[in-house]
Protein backbone atom coordinates (compact mmCIF):
# COMPACT_ATOMS: atom_id res chain seq x y z
CA UNK A 1 0.00 0.00 0.00
CA UNK A 2 1.16 3.53 -0.75
CA UNK A 3 1.84 5.76 2.23
CA UNK A 4 0.33 9.22 1.70
CA UNK A 5 1.28 12.26 3.79
CA UNK A 6 -0.30 15.71 3.66
CA UNK A 7 1.23 19.01 4.66
CA UNK A 8 0.39 19.97 8.24
CA UNK A 9 -1.32 23.08 6.82
CA UNK A 10 -4.13 20.76 5.76
CA UNK A 11 -4.54 19.15 9.16
CA UNK A 12 -8.06 20.54 9.54
CA UNK A 13 -9.28 18.62 6.48
CA UNK A 14 -6.68 15.91 5.82
CA UNK A 15 -6.12 12.67 7.72
CA UNK A 16 -3.75 13.00 10.63
CA UNK A 17 -0.41 11.35 9.96
CA UNK A 18 0.21 8.96 7.10
CA UNK A 19 -2.69 7.22 5.43
CA UNK A 20 -2.46 4.14 3.27
CA UNK A 21 -4.02 4.04 -0.16
CA UNK A 22 -3.93 1.94 -3.27
CA UNK A 23 -3.64 2.65 -6.97
CA UNK A 24 -1.33 2.32 -9.92
CA UNK A 25 -0.73 6.03 -10.38
CA UNK A 26 -1.01 9.21 -8.33
CA UNK A 27 -4.54 9.92 -9.62
CA UNK A 28 -5.82 6.60 -8.33
CA UNK A 29 -3.99 6.86 -5.04
CA UNK A 30 -5.39 10.32 -4.34
CA UNK A 31 -8.87 9.25 -5.43
CA UNK A 32 -8.67 6.45 -2.88
CA UNK A 33 -7.77 8.95 -0.16
CA UNK A 34 -10.43 11.44 -1.23
CA UNK A 35 -13.10 8.73 -1.12
CA UNK A 36 -12.45 8.41 2.59
CA UNK A 37 -11.55 12.06 3.28
CA UNK A 38 -13.66 14.09 0.83
CA UNK A 39 -12.96 17.48 2.44
CA UNK A 40 -9.32 17.48 1.37
CA UNK A 41 -10.02 17.04 -2.34
CA UNK A 42 -10.85 20.69 -3.10
CA UNK A 43 -7.69 21.81 -1.34
CA UNK A 44 -5.48 19.70 -3.63
CA UNK A 45 -7.37 19.64 -6.94
CA UNK A 46 -9.12 22.49 -8.75
CA UNK A 47 -12.53 22.57 -10.51
CA UNK A 48 -11.20 20.58 -13.47
CA UNK A 49 -9.42 17.98 -11.36
CA UNK A 50 -5.96 19.46 -11.92
CA UNK A 51 -3.43 19.55 -9.12
CA UNK A 52 -3.48 23.12 -7.88
CA UNK A 53 -0.61 25.22 -9.15
CA UNK A 54 0.87 25.84 -5.72
CA UNK A 55 0.66 22.27 -4.48
CA UNK A 56 3.96 20.35 -4.59
CA UNK A 57 3.86 16.57 -4.96
CA UNK A 58 6.81 14.38 -4.01
CA UNK A 59 6.90 10.67 -4.81
CA UNK A 60 9.66 8.59 -3.29
CA UNK A 61 11.70 11.75 -2.71
CA UNK A 62 11.29 12.98 -6.27
CA UNK A 63 9.48 16.27 -6.96
CA UNK A 64 6.92 15.38 -9.63
CA UNK A 65 6.38 18.46 -11.78
CA UNK A 66 4.74 17.26 -15.00
CA UNK A 67 1.83 14.95 -15.69
CA UNK A 68 1.56 14.54 -11.96
CA UNK A 69 -1.63 12.54 -11.83
CA UNK A 70 -0.49 10.07 -14.49
CA UNK A 71 2.78 9.33 -12.74
CA UNK A 72 2.98 5.61 -11.83
CA UNK A 73 3.47 4.54 -8.23
CA UNK A 74 4.81 1.34 -6.69
CA UNK A 75 2.94 -0.62 -4.10
CA UNK A 76 5.43 0.53 -1.47
CA UNK A 77 5.73 4.14 -2.64
CA UNK A 78 5.62 7.12 -0.32
CA UNK A 79 3.71 10.17 -1.48
CA UNK A 80 3.94 13.64 0.06
CA UNK A 81 1.39 16.34 -0.80
CA UNK A 82 2.92 19.62 0.29
CA UNK A 83 2.35 23.33 -0.25
CA UNK A 84 4.79 24.90 -2.67
CA UNK A 85 6.71 27.93 -1.50
CA UNK A 86 5.58 29.62 -4.71
CA UNK A 87 2.10 30.03 -3.26
CA UNK A 88 3.18 32.64 -0.81
Amino acid sequence: MVQVHFTSHLRHVAPGGAVTASGSNIREVLADVFARHPAVKGYVLDDQGRVRVHIAVFLDNEHIRRDILDHPVRADSELYVMQALSGG
Binding site: D46, D47, Q48, G49, R50
Partner: peptide, 18 residues
Amino acid sequence: PKYPAVEGGETDDKAPAL
Protein backbone atom coordinates in the same frame (compact mmCIF):
# COMPACT_ATOMS: atom_id res chain seq x y z
CA PRO B 1 -18.92 27.67 -6.58
CA LYS B 2 -17.33 25.37 -9.14
CA TYR B 3 -16.91 25.87 -12.84
CA PRO B 4 -18.35 22.99 -14.84
CA ALA B 5 -15.81 20.31 -15.68
CA VAL B 6 -15.06 20.27 -19.38
CA GLU B 7 -13.93 17.28 -21.37
CA GLY B 8 -10.17 17.04 -21.18
CA GLY B 9 -10.09 19.84 -18.60
CA GLU B 10 -7.69 17.96 -16.37
CA THR B 11 -4.93 18.45 -18.94
CA ASP B 12 -6.08 21.76 -20.39
CA ASP B 13 -4.49 24.80 -18.78
CA LYS B 14 -7.20 27.03 -20.29
CA ALA B 15 -10.17 25.14 -18.83
CA PRO B 16 -11.90 27.46 -16.32
CA ALA B 17 -11.56 27.09 -12.58
CA LEU B 18 -12.51 29.41 -9.76
